[in-house]
Design a protein around this nucleic acid. Structure first.
Lengths: 196, 196
DNA sequence: GTCCTTTGCCTAACAATGTTAGATTTTATA
DNA sequence: TATAAAATCTAACATTGTTAGGCAAAGGAC
């Protein structure tokens, strides 16, 4: 009699559907339009149900951020086996972030918004891979290595955020720079990698 | 009889006091705690008064962002005459941004938040100075010059934002990197300037 | 089968927010 | 002083997050 398991599965489904509904809403109308009531309507329940699965809205948002980082790491691990050269690996990893920010723009905005501190648990994961790459490129270890990695993170997210902010349909960056946004991003990352 | 002028001045004062009240509130409790009612209370008026001076809350926020850019430019012009070497000038300008982000943290957060596109008018101002500096360092002109400047902007704001996000009293960055946040920032900017 | 407990879900309300219409008071003008 | 205009307020509206309390279905005990 798997009815208890089924019940658990149903609940997991509701939980997931809440997260999905929130992301869908954000995708089409932005995060400011994501309300508990609209989420409830989307999953065909009443608002209080959301509180059965999440302590409050902030908690829900926090979980969505965690979900975002999982997705990002997943894209990373899928894309990093193509080369063994550490410089190429670093560029590839950069481009994974870039692609993520385009495919999941609303998630990226949530994850790296200035208003919410990053969940440090998520920030730490995947650090070992980066350490390995940077060590192979520069031979550095310890804090010097951490500093280089942080430099990369700053440039990476700064570039993505800025391009997102400046890129507008009515006045695309390509017109201003004669490069696609991705080429622009690529250039900046290459300049950094070359400086290592 | 200057009573009309005085009235105009009074209104300007109210307008300014609304902006100041909003910034003060943001300083002490964060932007999410900035409400029309609290602003009204702070300036000892009732909420509808705010709407005499600003179309709505978004409009008010927008004006605060403009005000922030003005302040930033002002700090820039005060601090840039100290040297004539363009590399030093660029580092000095970077540090002006850094200092601004510390002295007016809440303004910085508003100005460069991912949710709000930058007012492009503000983004353009001060561009000539940057062009001059970068041209003197690299000899580049035209779009290549613009690309370099944008690279600098991305690194600059990315670094400031990231440091803001990661720096926490209970676990300061200095522990992790053996550098103060400002030294860290300095390093990243120097690496970039050296790559030019 | 009946009773009871648990569970799932809903209705209805609360307070806080942005915003506006209309009344009222204050000020200026004639 | 009477009237017009301007400044300001009161009171309401809809929308939000959130919670208390109730109802009804499901499951187990006898």
């Amino acid at each position: 009699m798997g009815h208890i398991e089924r019940k658990k599965r149903d609940q997991e489904n509701i939980r997931a559907s809440i997260i999905n509904a929130a992301i869908d809403l954000a995708k089409s109308e932005g995060w400011s339009a994501v309300t508990i009531r609209k989420i409830a309507e989307a999953i065909e329940y009443t608002p209080p149900i959301v509180y059965e699965y999440f302590k409050n809205k902030d908690d829900l948002i926090h979980e969505i951020i965690i979900y975002g980082f999982q997705k990002l790491r997943q894209m990373g691990s899928e894309n990093l086996l193509k080369t063994s050269d550490p410089r190429e690996k670093l560029l590839a990893l950069s481009l994974v972030h870039w692609d993520f920010s385009y495919e999941h723009r609303e998630l990226y905005q949530l994850m790296f918004s200035l208003e919410r501190p990053l969940p440090s648990s998520e920030a730490e994961k995947g650090a070992q891979l980066l350490k390995d790459i940077f060590n192979r490129i520069t031979g550095q270890t310890g804090k010097e290595l951490d500093i280089l990695i942080f430099n990369w993170v700053c440039l990476l997210n700064g570039t993505i955020s800025m391009i997102m902010q400046f890129e507008k349909p009515e006045y695309p960056l390509e017109e201003k720079f004669a490069l696609t946004p991705r080429e622009l991003f690529n250039r900046f990352m290459e300049r950094f990698i070359n400086s290592l």
